[in-house]
Design a protein around this nucleic acid. Sequence first.
DNA 1: TTTCTGACTCGAA
DNA 2: CTTCGAGCCAGAA
Length: 109
Amino acid sequence: MKAESLNFFEKVYEVAKQIPFGKVTSYGAIAEYLGAARSARMVGYAMNGSVAKDVPAHRVVNRKGLLTGKQHFDGTNLMQQLLESEGIIVKDNQVQNLDTHFWNPIKEL
DNA sequence: TTTCTGACTCGAA
DNA sequence: CTTCGAGCCAGAA
């Protein structure tokens, strides 16, 4: 059983699911928490199946708070809309007050 | 097995 | 200050 490989994706989903309401985190933060700090891209890549995994991918943004993956959602403003629904201010595809809404898995977990 | 791609990140010009 | 490029890892073809 190649558990280790699968754990990577599973852990990504697991961590993403643990993101508190109204909070956001970055791919790099998750990757680093998983021990693969250089695999930030992999995190986002894994999120391709986030919907099937019930993972709130809309709470996951890049290090700058930019909604880089918004285009992977339904259309254009779905991701932003979801974040705003949680009390997160998003402007121009970027999360405002990122520092305030940022949730660090390494620190929290 | 090799090659390519990717929802990232950092560094340099 | 803004823009561009290269690097990194892991999975899929």
